[in-house]
Nucleic acid binder design. Structure first.
Lengths: 190, 190
DNA sequence: CACTAACGCTAGCGCTGCTAGAGTTCCAAG
DNA sequence: CTTGGAACTCTAGCAGCGCTAGCGTTAGTG
């Protein structure tokens, strides 16, 4: 009992170590630098150990994505609760979302751009992701009027996501970013 | 002179053949199925021939992306000019954009999601891309009011892009798609 | 007809994600 | 204290990737 629980604890610690190492490596050098060999070297185990914890590289990326969702939810919540009124709450949440994507590009990619084996638009979606979406929804609620809150929140999320990804892919000039964000939010608070 | 021009013509034809084969393979099986070996086999040449035409696989993808931009511009123009008024023009262009992404997911990805060596937000951007953006801008113009037409068009583009990519990545439920698109366009025509 | 320049090929490099099977360690029963 | 066996990690290797060096052939020129 005790020995088995110790082993399980050590396994859990090592799993956390793998996820953290993958995240750090990705954030430092991008996901193309995260190979199973480099990751194994970083956690000081051999490659096959990774596969005793995760089904494959995709599953490791998915675990990192879930971590990122928790971080994003926390930052959105902070931005929303710090705002003095509904108008500035939405502006603050929007700005926080964009800032998160800007500060953690690799993390953001694995959360929302890359294909990872995670359930998203279902009740089985990671609670952290639902929490992040919920923060967006709370910020949108006062401006929803008669429109469906869920659909309107999804639409705002998509717009923010588009701004972020097109800009980082070099498709949109960085210099108009604040202006674009302002135009978007104005259309949602009008 | 004549021999040289014939050779150049044949080279150009082969280059077109490579781009077309890459596009067909990508649209049929996705970009992960487009390997230099399979592509070479498909055009009935050896791998190194590809590299005498393009610097690398990225450059081939970029060429496909430019083709896709021309197609998109054509479809957006058709949608815009067929509409009887400014309101339905924007709705039509938005729907056409989304429909294009839905019908050509691999093509859309290489145009706007994947990293390809193409200049985008500069005057050196491919004319076909500028044409596509111009069609969007013309549809937005009647609704711009005092806002910057360029920035507003970029914002709408980003929103459409976000809707498309999040939905295809499984992040947004497909069933609310029409509702979301309607909400978005309402915010831009209001 | 001989020479040369252009061109496409074979073969191979270093890398990827992933896995089979050998070898080792550690715990428990006698 | 010893021994059997399960749990576990390692080395080594597979098939495939993007890409390239260098050889052999073909085709046009003087």
């Amino acid at each position: 009992m005790s020995i088995q629980s110790r082993r399980e604890r050590e396994r859990a610690e090592r799993e956390k170590l793998i996820v953290t190492a993958a995240r750090e490596l990705a954030e430092a050098e991008g996901w193309e630098a995260v190979t199973t060999r480099r990751l194994a070297e970083r956690v000081e185990y051999s490659q096959p150990v990774l596969y005793s914890h995760f089904k494959g590289k995709d599953a490791i990326m998915a675990a990192v994505a879930v971590e990122g969702c928790a971080d994003l939810a926390r930052e959105l919540r902070a931005a929303r609760t710090a705002a003095p009124d509904a108008h500035r709450a939405l502006a603050g949440v929007g700005a926080a979302y964009v800032a998160f994507a800007d500060r953690h590009p690799a993390l953001y990619d694995v959360m929302f751009s890359q294909a990872v084996p995670l359930p998203f638009a279902t009740p089985e979606a990671p609670p952290a992701l639902q929490a992040a979406f919920g923060e967006l929804a709370e910020a949108v609620r006062p401006h929803a009027g008669d429109d469906s809150l869920g659909a309107l929140t999804e639409t705002l999320w998509a717009a923010l996501h588009g701004l972020v990804t097109l800009m980082r892919g070099g498709r949109l000039p960085r210099e108009h970013h604040e202006l674009r964000l302002g135009l978007l939010l104005a259309r949602f608070t009008g």
